[in-house]
Design a protein around this nucleic acid. Structure first.
Lengths: 250, 250
DNA sequence: TTATTACGTTTTCTCGAGAAAAGTGATTTC
DNA sequence: GAAATCACTTTTCTCGAGAAAACGTAATAA
């Protein structure tokens, strides 16, 4: 539970204007990592980054510590920080765990959500659909779609009363998004994501938990499938700034 | 996930000697929070704590940021840090989520664990049993028991291949431990925990997943039950350092 | 009395410089 | 030629002081 507050990290819809420089650097850095600007495994040198993000060294260090919360950055003893590496095995793990948590959350949301929740789901789906139309053109359009996609998935399980499940879901979604974005440059435009979202939306408001969960599971796993078609050396991107190429087992 | 390394935060058995002052302060502070030395909701003033833990202000701030990872500390905009508050609702949530994750992990561990895993489980159970004998006497004995209890639960699911489930389990276990320790001053010595552990251990090595999960679920939920018997104002401890006593609704 | 405003104090946040460690490359030795 | 040693450079880590914000108190006005 990153920051605090009862609503638990739902700063999705609007930017609440970072109250502190640390938070500002944290948000920008997180965005860059998720978008792939900072590549997996890349070394994060404080001296360089403090200039780029226009903050002091100490401030940037604190932002990096915060990013460990999201498992987007790893710290190693006295050897500085790195962008968390990626691997197919890790993404399989993320996918599985996400299905486990998100279907459970969806079940509870369907069981407990009130009419306001139904309305929110429909509204989020509508906004997402609109963003799909404008997709493909500018880069900002894609940003907007990504944002609304996240909101849609968050709203779906917003009626789930478990703060912890929602917290973990948030972390895993971020991870998924990173994989999806990084792979996006290689793959073609998504399959019929719209239909999946639509079915999910309908099943949810119809209170058909089994069907909704089935669709959701399929939806999440499809992303994994499309990533399996990546070139073999796709996950080696992070190797770029590793300690030279220490000869690997002569 | 928290620190780094493939084995994913399994620094349970031995202290790997903190490589950095930040890590040292982090570990000590975490211990104090889990043990209840720092009460829930308590204000964490950097100026005071830096003397107590003998580190600089910046260093302590970084340690606090790290503790947000474990959801043991919350930060509020420009109003400093606090020990994460507790509530019965939160503990119910923790318990539920823990059951969900830990049973799944246990199932996978039972399905995939090899003979070395079986041996580890038996060994951990044995060590835990020994610690139970010496329990009640010194405070250190209880510390040792707590430690071995954690190791036992971690080893049980160590054969689960999902790093993410284990990571989340680790966070939730810490939370549970905090609740359990805080409530320990009020409640009597545990019920027949030994029998529960024993059944769990036997079912696990016998590869009886259903029985093991049933016992585990029961085991986790019992702690919740015993906490429900706490005095009503038990969860108000955190109120101590809140913004004076702002008159609450005339 | 109650609400508002202004001031002073405390706390938090931020920054740059110094100490410690790791990494790098050249030299020496077997 | 390969391994080990040593000095040098880069990077990380740590600290204390200054700037900014929040908090608490007291005085003023309705």
């Amino acid at each position: 539970m990153s920051d605090s507050s009862p609503p638990l990290e739902l700063n999705a819809s609007d930017r609440p204007a970072p109250k502190t420089l640390v938070e500002g650097a944290y948000l920008r850095l997180r965005r860059d990592i998720i978008e792939g600007v900072r590549q997996p495994g890349e070394k994060l040198r404080v001296e360089h980054l403090k200039d780029e993000y226009q903050v002091g060294a100490g401030t940037l260090r604190e932002a990096l510590q915060l990013l460990i919360t999201d498992a987007l950055v790893v710290a190693q003893g006295q050897r500085g920080f790195r962008v968390a590496p990626i691997s197919l095995a890790d993404f399989e793990d993320i996918t599985r765990t996400r299905v486990l948590l998100e279907t459970e959350a969806l079940r509870q949301a369907i069981a407990l959500g009130d009419e306001a929740w139904e309305a929110d789901v429909l509204a989020a789906f509508h906004r997402l659909s609109r963003a799909e139309d404008k997709l493909g053109a500018s880069n900002e359009a894609r940003e907007e779609w990504e944002h609304r996609n996240r909101v849609f998935h968050e709203v779906l399980i917003a009626a789930c009363p478990s703060r912890w499940i929602r917290h973990f879901q948030h972390i895993l979604y971020q991870q998924s998004e990173r994989y999806r974005r990084i792979s996006h440059f290689h793959s073609t435009i998504p399959r019929d994501v719209h239909a999946e979202h639509e079915g999910l939306c309908q099943a949810a408001v119809a209170r058909d938990a089994d069907r909704a969960c089935a669709i959701l599971t399929d939806h999440i796993q499809r992303t994994l499938e499309s990533l399996k078609g990546m070139p073999d050396d796709f996950f080696d991107t992070g190797r770029q700034s590793l300690p030279k190429n220490r000869r690997q087992a002569a």
